[in-house]
Every structure is written in structure tokens, then in C-alpha cells.
Amino acid sequence: MQDRPSGFGNPWLQLAVSVVCVLVSELLLKRGATDIADLSSAWSWTGINGLESPLVWLGIAFVIASFLSWLYVLKYIPLTIAFPLSRVVDILVPVSCWIFLGEFISIWRWCGIALVVIGLALVAKPVARIEERL
């Protein structure tokens, strides 16, 4: 990780960009899919009718952006650190659904979110130490 670039090319910033892009894409795809839902059509099972929604197209653009920044992250950060940290999205999605889409989160789900946060802290701690030494 010694020769890693700084500024916008910083791989940790790109990891955050990738996670935010996944989060935004999930919310856009959900909104887009709900907007044009036509459950009576047989085609709706394939999801292809989702392409009628501009929000779905915007969601797809965010999916591509997240993949490109993820490839960049893989160039610099070990998979044992980058992949577990990228799963922060698994708690950001339900929490965003709670905040922006008004969905309900049960007690067990909050417990799961807490476990993920503790796990993320454990994975991120050695990273903080590596960064201090640089």
C-alpha cells in the first residue's frame, strides 16, 4: 500500500465512493421498480419492464460506477480488508430504507446491524494502524 495515490485517487476514498454508489443504486432501483410495477403483466417477472423507468437507468449507471471504483480499490487494498469493509452497505441499505422509504426495522435486525458495526470496527482497526505508520 506504500505507493498508493492521494486525493481523488486515494483507494480508501474510492472504497467509500463504491459503497455510496451501491447504496444509491439500490434505492433508485427500488423506487424505479415500484413506480412502474405492473404485476398483471407476465413480463414483469423478468424485470425487463423495469427499463421503462428513468430511475432504473440512473440506478444502472450507479451500479457501473460502483464496479469501476471497486476495480480501482482492488488494485491497492487487500481483499481480506476491502471486501468485509464494503459490506457496510448491508447496514446502510436497511437504515436508509428506514429513513428515506419509511420501512420498518425489527429488534433482531437492529441486533444484526450492531454485530456488523462491531465486525467492521475490528476489520478497520489494523487499517488505522497501517495508515498511522505511513
Partner: peptide, 8 residues
Amino acid sequence: GALLISTG
């Protein structure tokens, strides 16, 4: 850490 994230 990975085990806790998986369980969560």
C-alpha cells in the same frame, strides 16, 4: 471481524 459481519 469477518465472522461478526457474516453473522450480522
